[in-house]
Design a protein around this nucleic acid. Structure first.
Lengths: 406, 406
DNA sequence: AGACTTAATGAATCGTTCC
DNA sequence: TGGAACGATTCATTAAGTC
């Protein structure tokens, strides 16, 4: 995104709106005479919106105290209702620091559903008629959230997949790597004239329409808020690049963005940087304080810089399986090395079989030669029109196909 | 996948299990005296499963007529409940051939939910205790399906994103390109010991864990079934590569795979090619007939192309004592860890001794490192010709001896 | 200083068998 | 049926430590 923080000349590449040497926002707010998280204690409807503030308290009560039809966009990162068993250890026996906070504990699906219905209904009330909502979740909760949201009259526009560049692996080898989270983008109702900056996104995406699958890294490194002890302040802090893409695509400068599960304030930080107003609701004082300090350090971007974030591109990795799936190499056919000394059979799952042994092109290539390692791509060949062709040739072909497809 | 069809020498590149010049399966079934879609008309429970057949009729009734706990895997591609307003036109004013079939019409979410609950419940009944279910859908329906599935007691294992290599663009530029569909993989219950071929998938993916986001092309070209008029036979035919990945990852050769929304039979075609049995349920005779003809033309792959690969988890257990008894590791010799930090002595009874402590290779390995647990097989090594060799190598040797002995 | 090695970590519904 | 023993299992990235 290229947002810069105050007081730093370094790190021109990283998105960075966090951490600074400036005083916490709390102190600065008092100096300006702004109310400080006093909002939920007030009775009745306030005269005006508590803009660019973090209110501590229950988000449903706080939303119900706001005037109706006053917010342009809601971004929500609710508890996921993870249902963890015991401890999980990595193969090196270190312990995984899981999300086991009280705020993510629900007794049943019914309880989670009631919670979800309550905050979604409150959010719908404060949304302007043409407003829209984004929610992020995982397979634990997103299906329930999506169904309830439809029941309440929201009109689904897209589901968006955040493909994580560096997800946590599956340590026990019992499932697929859980490498994505899902966002739902929904208008307040079927008739809502929602905001969507199609052209801006297309321009930032090599003039291709922005797809529903977004490839972005996790929030780590300097962007990740850490306490004095070096521990992460919030277990599920979202990357600013994700929020930037949401706000750039679905809101206008000056729009009011409400986040009912503000956490450490990624939504607020990005909103400030991009010239949007925010209302942050957060139950935990610790998170709210961290968010205030973080947002205070954000330097708003100049309006010209509000262009769409370019998509991150990396050299696509082609697994051998995809060649089998596309039929470039066929399941059941024989691969052979250049000197025709070793043979193996291609299996439908993209592994090779040599005698009783089954493994990757690399493993089986190594086994054939009695070597510890082997590059299967250059070692194995297939016969095409009486000539041997390296399977690496097919990989190159697949790669250029992929490049064409974007 | 590289599956070839009968009677064709052409098209060496495309995956192809469809279309042929052979007579339709219906005629061939009669010739063989096999029952033809008579199943739903029968009263009571059939004596045996209608394997490798397509039954025409309502899938809920058909499933309820099957014996309970008889199916290993269910793959379902239910109606998506698409809600298109009027006609959709491309920028050049040509009409998009949208899904507007009667079978995709539901009066309300409530009606769709009732339908979904009915078929999911029937599917759960026919599943074996360790069985699993896959469902595919889009944002129109998948959230409802996912929530209901959780309510019925299915245990979600992953949500999988099928990233389309060549999705239909959003012609009006009002949303993100809808470039993916979602699959849910769920076990019948929380305690189910579901099938997952972790090693096979990893082997086909450059020795990296398979992720939850799959990049695959749409079903087009020769694979797409077309009628005499050149029009597609079914509006939502799924690619065979998608089904192949599902069946290879989550079923074994010989398993029974039931598809309650069989359509033109992609599930059956791929199941036959990969040595699985199938039961296809389809309401529309036209689709069922097309599916039968298609599947009849499928040439199964050679068993070695899809046979289940042995994994460490399935291989016979070798006690460390047997290595000592066979002399592969000698009583009295020293075992050492890879970094030469810990040593222990092998005892004649197959235990290790470290100082005063005596115990299994695992216990002593854990003790040496001060950890709660340890895999002694991979932790301990012995010296052979000035090099460290893992004792796991000797276990593999013992296993292949065992295999030779039968 | 720079190259290389080692360590740490991220929203995770992450065993099976035998006694 | 509960407890103990066996034994299978990680990728991308950042940051710190070592040569």
């Amino acid at each position: 995104m290229g947002i810069s923080r105050t007081g730093t000349a370094s790190a021109p590449v990283r998105i960075q709106v966090s951490r600074t040497g400036r005083p916490a926002l709390g102190a600065r707010m008092k100096a300006k005479g702004l109310p400080n998280h006093s909002f939920p204690d007030q009775i009745g409807v306030p005269r005006e919106l508590p803009l660019d503030q973090v209110l501590v308290g229950d988000c449903v009560a706080a939303m119900n105290a706001l005037p109706p039809a006053s917010v342009d966009l809601v971004f929500a990162d609710p508890p996921y209702n993870l249902q963890l068993g015991g401890d999980l250890r990595r193969p090196d026996d270190s312990l995984v620091d899981a999300v086991d906070d009280d705020w993510d504990k629900f007794a049943s699906f019914a309880e989670y559903d009631a919670f979800t219905r309550a905050w979604l209904q409150a959010a719908r009330r404060v949304l302007k008629p043409d407003g829209a909502l984004w929610v992020i979740g995982s397979y634990h909760n997103i299906f329930r959230v999506g169904a309830i949201l439809q029941d309440l009259g929201f009109w689904m526009l897209n589901d968006i997949v955040w493909r994580k560049a560096n997800p946590m692996p599956n340590f026990r080898g019992r499932r697929f790597t859980n490498a994505h989270e899902t966002l739902i983008w929904a208008a307040r109702g079927e008739q809502s004239k929602y905001t969507f900056h199609y052209e801006a996104l297309k321009g930032g995406n090599d003039d291709l329409q922005m797809r529903s699958d977004w490839y972005l890294p996790l929030c780590t490194g300097e962007e990740r808020l850490k306490g004095a002890d070096g521990a992460k302040v919030h277990p599920t802090q979202k990357p600013e690049a994700l929020l930037a893409r949401v706000l750039l695509s679905a809101s206008n400068p000056g729009d009011v963005v409400l986040d009912p599960f503000f956490g450490t304030g990624t939504t607020g930080a990005v909103a400030k940087a991009l010239g949007r107003r925010f209302i942050g609701l957060e139950r935990e004082t610790v998170y709210a304080e961290a968010a205030r300090a973080r947002i205070a350090a954000v330097q708003p971007l100049s309006p010209e810089a509000f262009a769409a974030a370019p998509s991150k591109r990396t050299e696509p990795r082609i697994p051998f399986l995809s060649l089998v799936e596309s039929g470039l190499v066929k399941a059941g056919e024989t691969v052979i090395d250049e000197k025709r000394r070793h043979k193996a059979v291609v299996r439908a799952d993209g592994t090779l079989m040599l005698g009783p042994a089954i493994g990757s092109i690399h493993k089986v290539g190594a086994l054939a030669q009695g070597l510890p390692a082997c590059n299967g791509w250059t070692f194995w060949h297939v016969e095409r029109e009486d000539k041997l062709v390296s399977i690496d040739v097919f990989r190159s072909a697949a790669r250029s196909e992929l490049a064409k497809a974007g």
